[in-house]
Every structure is written in C-alpha cells, then in structure tokens.
Amino acid sequence: MIEHIISTLPQVLIDGLALGAVYAIIALGYTMVYGILELINFAHGEIFMTGAFIGTALFITLSGLGFLAVMPALLALLLVLIVTSILTGFLGVGIERVAYRPLRKAPKLITLISAIGVSFLLQDLVRFITELKKGNYILTGPSLFTEQISIKASSILSSFADAQIKSSTIILVVTAIVMMIGLDYFVNRTKWGMAMRAVAQDRDTASLMSINVNKVISLTFFLGSALGGATGVLFAVQYGTIDPYIGFILGLKAFTAAVLGGIGNIRGAMVGGLVLGLIEMFAAANLSVITSNVFTAEYKDVFAFIILIIVLIYKPEGIFGKAVAEKV
C-alpha cells in the first residue's frame, strides 16, 4: 500500500497541481465577490463553463479557417484567452447588473435563489446554443499542446514511478500563476484595487469616501469572471472534452477551496485551491488502495464535500481568515 502511494506520488503531485490551479483561480472569483457582497455567486462555476465553451468554439473556428495550422499555437492560445476573458468578464458584469443588483437590499436567501437561477439558465443556454450548432452538447476542441514529457522521478528516489506531464499542464500552471500574481498586484498595489479592498471592508464608509461602489462591484465581477472564463479555456485545452454541466460541481469545489483558504482572502483562495486539488488527486489515486476497494475513486467528490463541511463547522474563517464576531 505504502509503495503504491509513494510510487504514484510524482504523478499525483503533477495532476493535483494542475487541478489545484484550476480550483485556485475559480476560487478567486468566489472569494472576491463574497468579500464585497457577502454573496455566494453560484453562477461563477457557469461562467467558467461558458469560458470553456467560448474558448473551444474560438479554437474550432480558428482551426476551421486554417489559422491554427499556420499560427504558433501559443499565440492562438493567447488570443483565445484574451477574447474569452473579455467576453466572460462582461457576462459577469451583466449578471450582477440584472440578477443581483436589484436584490442588494433583499434578504440574502432571495439573492442566493436568484444566483442559482442564473446558474441553471446559463447551463441551458450554453447547452442550447451548442446543440443548435453542433447537434450535441458535448464538445471536443482541437487537440493542442499534447506533447507528453516524461519526468524521470525514479532517478530522484527509486521507489517513485516515472510521471508524465503534458505540455498543456505546464501552460495551465504557468498561466494560472501569472494570473494570480497579476491579480494580487492589482488588488494590493493599484488605486482600483485599493477601492476594492475599501468596499470589501465597509461598503457604506467607502461610499462616503466618494468611492463609486457600483463601479467597484462591477469591476470585481469583471475581474473574477474574466479569470474564471480564462480558466475555462485552459481547462478545455487540458482535459479536451467539455459539457455544460462541468461548472456546477467544479464551482462547488472551488468554493470549498475559497472557504478553506478563508473566504474573502485572495491569497487564501490560491492556497486553498492547491490544497484541495492535491487532496482530490491523492484520493483519486489511492482511495481504493487505502481502503482495500471499499471506497473507490468515485468517492473523491464526497471527500471534497466532507472537507467543506468540516471546515465550515470547525474553522469557518478558513486557514488564513480571521474569526469575526457578528456585530450586534
């Protein structure tokens, strides 16, 4: 058993890192919105999914026009990433305007319900459009960045098995890191980032300080959704096949990551995402071995949820958050 765990460890680390990077960036979207509106933006997972579809559609179009053959793949990816993130960014802003802003003074329950509604609506819209165009809602993009690089992990420690890494994984992780650093810089070093933090701290005071709260909220949605959409593109490239329902559970787990890192805490979300990705891949690889086949890898989602529940009960402020007492 131990041998199995150790020998698969390098591959688990690689796969966990890739999945964790996806969770981390989506978690950022949840955390930013929660930090500012105290709202679980259920639709965020769907924005990610929409990004995956837009990206794949763009790739298919590019390849249909023959561009993909002549243009460096990295350039194409960059183009697709930019276009997609702008589109999903505006999608996020639009959702906030239409479905959340009118409810800002309504009970939280109602806003949450509206968010779930948006989430379902988006799933079906994407399903609908894809099916209309393709006759099928499961979409497979052109395969890109598929070179396998073998990592001779056994030369580090003889009980390691060699691992495989796709070049798309490297791109995924690198892009994710770039986006996270960029966001961190934006939030902590720029004027707009400061305004965002001010609004998150205390919306009323911020508006007294002549910060345009609505603009800041829109900006937050734009950034979170742009990052989410871009992650969708990376996800589609990495895993190949997508359907309109990938966003919901994945979003839920990303939310778990956000909670794990301390909701509202941007760096916490990144760490939470990585931790969760690693745990999940570890569970997927070893669960059946550890429990001698009682629990199979299918229970890995159960794992994520149980982590969520445990964190929420025992440490709702997360790993990096501060405990706050509600003011009475």
Binding site: A106, T111, S114, G117, L122, D124
Partner: peptide, 20 residues
C-alpha cells in the same frame, strides 16, 4: 435542441430569477 422538454433548466432558472 429547441425541444421544450429539454428546456427545464432554462425555465426553472428563469422562474427563479424573475420571481426573486
């Protein structure tokens, strides 16, 4: 793709948002 029987999610989603 337009078949109303498949539109459940869209209809539910719309009802949720509009009523909220």
């Amino acid at each position: 793709a337009l078949s109303p029987a498949k539109m459940q999610r869209m209809i539910f989603g719309l009802i949720l948002v509009l009523f909220a």
